[in-house]
């Protein structure tokens, strides 16, 4: 068991899957000779060569489409899009092609691609490098969407995604690539479905995904010092949503806060509240509260950016409100 960084976990998963199957390839901007913007593919070009570690031109829609086409013939491409903002350019091939080909071919053609991309605000990257957009992919039938919160899932979910026969979108986060965590030395896989209770508690449920799990964990620690036992759930997968884990927790705590880094409208929080309403409405003792970004493009100015994006104190304040202690 070694403590490694998030980017190292992704790199290790790439390396093992490339070694395991000659039809696994990686493609994206600057991933080869340059080693990847976040180092997630560093050294692989030297090890596997230009035909399998493919530096693409800045043509997100078509290089994603080329990966999809190759996957239809049995190749397993790991496609990196440097920022989820740029994934907007690839929505045609991701949503109109990858998500639909299996269905509209009557199950006769699969598109086993993996698309990895960081979504989230980092540090003053401004409006066109700070989008989150998970909600767009989680609303599309035919895709799987996962959001690893740390190195363990970053490694284990990428490995599962490569082997899965469905198109998988992996949403990472610019602020997490240097986050460190324990990852076992032996090979393992983490499933692409299922939420995880990452801190057990009995008074209130805090639900997050990707980076916002860490905001929930920080808020839970502060709540503990105030004598409140908070349960924290990492959704892990946004498509499909694990309804059972959410229901079991809310039936136990009767109170819930959902933390998302994105804007609220038609978002993850809205979906989770719908799930709770459908699954266990009468278990609620208080109305659920969403913690989310302000409804603005992300500003450049440091103070404005901070004000636009939720932090652990916002999650804490929301929890206290739900608990009637605000």
């Amino acid at each position: 068991m070694a403590e490694i960084a998030y980017w190292e976990a992704i790199r290790r998963a790439h390396d093992e899957e490339l070694a395991n199957d000659p039809l696994v390839i990686a493609m994206g901007e600057d991933i080869g000779v340059a080693g990847g913007t976040y180092k997630a593919t560093s050294g692989l070009y030297q090890k596997y060569g230009p035909e399998r570690i493919i530096d693409t031109p800045i043509s997100e829609n078509s290089y994603t489409g080329i990966g999809i086409g190759a996957s239809m013939a049995g190749v397993r491409p790991i496609i990196e899009i440097m920022s989820i903002n740029f994934a907007l350019l690839a929505l045609d091939t991701l949503i109109n092609a990858a998500a639909k080909i299996r269905y509209m071919s009557g199950g006769r053609v699969s598109c086993p691609i993996v698309m990895r991309t960081p979504g989230g605000t980092a540090h003053q990257l401004a409006a066109q490098h700070s989008a989150r957009l998970a909600r767009m992919f989680m609303s599309t039938a035919g895709l799987r969407v996962v959001t690893p919160r740390g190195p363990l899932d970053a490694y284990g979910m990428l490995k599962s995604a490569v082997r899965c026969n469905d198109p998988v979108i992996i949403i990472e986060h610019e602020s997490m690539y240097n986050m460190r965590g324990e990852v076992p030395d032996q090979e393992f896989f983490r499933p692409l479905e299922g939420a995880e209770v990452v801190r057990a508690g009995s008074d209130i449920t805090l639900i997050g995904y990707n980076y916002s799990v860490h905001l929930c964990l920080a808020a839970a620690a502060k709540l503990a010092s105030m004598g409140v036992s908070a349960e924290v759930i990492d959704l892990r997968a946004l498509k499909p949503i694990d309804r059972d884990t959410i229901r079991r927790s809310v039936e136990k705590t009767h109170k819930v806060v959902i933390a998302e880094e994105d804007e609220a409208a038609v978002g993850v929080g809205a979906e989770i509240i719908s799930v709770i309403t459908e699954e266990c409405f009468f278990a609620l003792d208080a109305q659920p509260v969403r913690v989310h970004a302000a409804d603005v493009p992300v500003p450049y100015n440091r103070q404005l950016e901070k004000a636009a994006i939720p932090n652990a104190d916002d999650v804490l304040a929301a929890a206290l409100k739900v608990l009637g202690r605000a």
């Binding site: 290089y63 080329i66 999809i68 086409g69 190759a70 239809m72 190749v75 091939t93």
Partner: peptide, 9 residues
């Protein structure tokens, strides 16, 4: 692009 991907395969 799908055709180019098939060719890449």
């Amino acid at each position: 692009p799908l055709a180019a991907g098939l060719a890449m395969a």
